[in-house]
Design a protein around this nucleic acid. Structure first.
Lengths: 338, 338
DNA sequence: CCTGGCACTCCTCCACCATGAGTGCCAGCA
DNA sequence: TGCTGGCACTCATGGTGGAGGAGTGCCAGG
């Protein structure tokens, strides 16, 4: 196993490399971090770390650079999550509090994340699948035409037109609205179908067709409109990526343009808790020199969507993780309040 | 004034430079385009063109490169709009026909434009300034907490939270809902403010604070709703920009992230007809080495929004203009049908 | 197991030069 | 007046060849 000091050396290498962007040598290490050993000793440790695949040399007689495996160990064992300062937290809260609707919340979150981490931010809109129904509104637009508005606890609003087989009265609609809400308000999407199944039976025969049509649309919306949307921002930060520009940045931009790729990227992360995918751990080839830090967020206990950042593998993991976690937390609060 | 042949030389320079990305010299010119004169003559013409500011040399003893002024002349006088081929038109139509809703139309348009022009595409959502209010819904979520839902005739739904200064009763809310709808349903956004101005006065003193707060939120929503949204895509094409990468691409990415900048960019163009803004003609500094080709589109005669592309000043203007115009035309058709 | 010493590797920087594309100018010619 | 060929000149580009130096691996001694 790796001795305590070797881990310390690895940590030092990661920290220095993240800071300087240059391969780090044994001498510089002993000076900058006051390791109580000589450069020669550090060199031995480095050789061992290299044998184990945690670091690598770009070429002979150059310093060492962490490998993906090295970053992995760093993230798992050596680094914590750096909490944000109080002023930072305050700023986050103030910024997010100004949001007026869901689009605005997501937009602000993206900008915030990009600014805090100086990386590319990705925020998924709250998913409908795990949401609960806050309210269902029915509007009689024409004698045989209803509008169904579904409001979720995350603030998302879906709306559908329903063509009724027969004209329906305003009182029927009011009745239906009341019953519908009393049954499904506060319920999760998945739990709705059995709760409304017998609803047509309690109405007059002439209205049943309408109610069936309405319910069909409602259920369809719940199931089908689970389509995930997302927003990205901070792509200008890609320019800080490295020296070998075009080749690195191109595939990343391409990957970021494909929602499917991004959704998979966020989706793959574990149900709760923060996920860090480093370099080649990302399935998508274009992102093999980037790391993705993502976490779920939600209004209650459960995560309703994910957010995260995409940056170079050489990133400040503790700081990034701290920012991502903090933002997710505050967004959750905002959603819970609204 | 410039002789016929000099204009021909300028055209040749622009075409060659766009193709090769390299300064073009007199000898190569006479060969590639079969000008019936010697290189020496072309050199004289070039010197004249340079004196007039249409072309420039990166350094002594290099070929010539068009200036912004040169491109301007090229676009205005020398180049037409290259119509798309029939297969291309067919492909556009097929692709756009598959769209299911407005978001999808805009999304597909962006991808299409980016792909056709191999540049960054920007598409503005159809403007809502002419929308009318279909219905306003009020929900009492808590004793002092209202949800305002605004439904427009275009099918858009906006929703806002309103914190009331004092608790309000369900009956007050119902009353308010009825009065509000009878006044503003069917009205255009711009006509709403005067119609609701005196509404608080007809309620009990204790509720006036709430009603004022509600109206403030409503008016705010109407203004925001008319605010233009847009979608961009094809940023990966920025990597084909040039050799001096980071410095060129950075400010462009930054500019593209600011909706305000983009809206101004599109908005500045003339009401109808295609607009080409070349290099420094763009107000925004970060875009001083890019050109913007934009055009209005709409379902009827009138343009409801703009779309366009952003690319290097060294772009294929005829082809780009052709693609932009064609896409705008087809999007207009799609909108008219739906 | 740590340390200092030492030879070795190899990247980076810079100076230098040859090459060649491209120019400006000029004198001659239609 | 306008076009042409010729010619000297400029200057970016690319390749070569050390000098310098950072960093390594290894070894012998504490």
């Amino acid at each position: 196993m790796l001795s305590e000091r070797r881990l310390e050396v690895l940590r030092a290498i990661v920290q220095d490399y993240v800071g300087t962007e240059e391969p780090v040598g044994s001498k510089a290490l002993t000076q900058r971090h006051n390791l109580q050993v000589s450069p020669a000793t550090v060199r031995n440790d480095m050789a061992a770390l290299e044998d184990d695949g945690f670091i690598a040399q770009p070429h002979t007689s150059a310093g060492r650079v962490p490998t993906d495996k090295g970053y992995r160990l760093f993230v798992d064992k050596l680094a914590g999550v750096k909490p944000l300062s109080h002023p930072e937290r305050r700023a986050i809260q103030n910024f997010l509090d100004g949001a007026v609707d869901l689009d605005d919340v997501v937009g602000r979150t993206v900008r915030l994340l990009a600014q805090l981490t100086r990386q590319v931010a990705v925020v998924q809109y709250p998913s409908l699948t795990r949401s609960t129904v806050r309210h269902v509104e029915l509007l009689l637009l024409a004698p045989a035409r209803l509008m169904l508005v579904l409001i979720t606890d995350t603030g998302r609003v879906e709306q559908r037109m329903v063509d009724c087989p027969a004209p329906v009265s305003e009182t029927t609609v009011a009745d239906l609205r009341a019953r519908l809400n009393s049954r499904i308000a506060g319920q999760r999407f998945a739990e709705v179908p059995p709760l409304v199944q017998d609803l047509p039976e309690s109405f007059d025969l002439e209205d049943r067709g309408t109610i069936s049509a309405l319910l069909a649309t409602l259920l369809e919306t719940l199931v089908e409109e689970t389509e995930e949307r997302l927003m990205i921002g901070g792509t200008a930060n890609l320019t800080r990526f490295g020296h070998d520009f075009p080749l690195t940045i191109r595939p990343v931009l391409e990957a970021l343009e494909e929602q499917v790729v991004l959704l998979k990227l966020l989706g793959e992360s574990t149900e709760s808790g923060m996920t860090v995918r480093i370099g080649h751990e990302n399935a998508h080839e274009g992102l093999s020199s980037t790391s993705v830090v993502s976490v779920g967020y939600g209004s209650g206990e459960e995560a309703v969507a994910k957010l995260g950042v995409v940056g170079p593998t050489r990133m400040d993991y503790p700081g990034t993780m701290g920012a991502v976690r903090a933002v997710a937390r505050y967004v959750g609060q905002i959603l819970a309040e609204s």
